[in-house]
């Protein structure tokens, strides 16, 4: 069963016909040629497919494209302005926050979404006092980024990069 949908992807309006079974991730990668979000597990268990959906970080592999008709999608590719990387991306470069690079666009989108969540005052599992604004220390960054697995083990550099980008 096919359906016509319109998405705004990295600032561009894209209209396409999708199988109702097509996930947002596959629509982006296989239909629109937007390869920045990666498929690492296809079951919401690794975070490589993380994009910002209407500004919130989500796993695009568990989202049906047809259910996102009209949505705004931002990928890591869309975060940079031309050749100028987003401050989070710049920090990843400086801190060597990746090795093979496959989880990286998801880490970057997740970090950007996460920093907005912190700005909005959202607590995390390790926030000591739920009634206060969270203070973004390393433990908070680690907990909040735990939905993004990295098999190369770049975690410590990712944390340093995010810490710097948050300042």
């Amino acid at each position: 069963m096919d359906a016509e949908i319109t998405l705004r992807v990295d600032g561009q309006r894209r209209t396409l016909s999708v199988d109702t079974r097509t996930t947002l991730l596959d629509a982006l990668r296989e239909r629109l040629g937007v390869i920045s979000p990666k498929k690492g597990c296809d079951h919401g268990q690794c975070g490589a497919c993380t994009v910002l959906l209407d500004g919130r970080r989500v796993t695009s592999c568990l989202t049906l494209a047809v259910a996102q008709d009209g949505a705004e999608v931002t990928t890591a590719e869309g975060l940079s302005e031309g050749d100028r990387p987003h401050p989070v991306q710049q920090a990843f470069l400086e801190h060597d926050g990746f090795q093979c690079g496959y989880c990286t666009p998801g880490q970057v989108c997740s970090a950007v979404g996460m920093l907005d969540e912190v700005k909005a005052g959202w607590p995390s599992h390790v926030t000591e006092n739920l009634e206060e604004e969270p203070d973004l220390d390393d433990e908070e960054i680690r907990e909040r980024m735990s939905g993004n697995l990295c098999r190369c083990g770049a975690y410590t550099n990712i944390v340093s990069a995010i810490r710097e980008a948050a300042e």
Binding site: R29, G33, S36, K38, D96, F98, P105
Partner: peptide, 26 residues
């Protein structure tokens, strides 16, 4: 000195997600 060592040459493509892996070759 890690601070002076060159950054990864493929870094900009990798942080943007535009470095093409096998399945992504056009």
């Amino acid at each position: 000195d890690p601070g002076r060592a060159p950054q990864r040459l493929d870094g900009p493509d990798k942080v943007a997600g535009t470095a093409r892996y096998a399945f992504e070759q056009p």
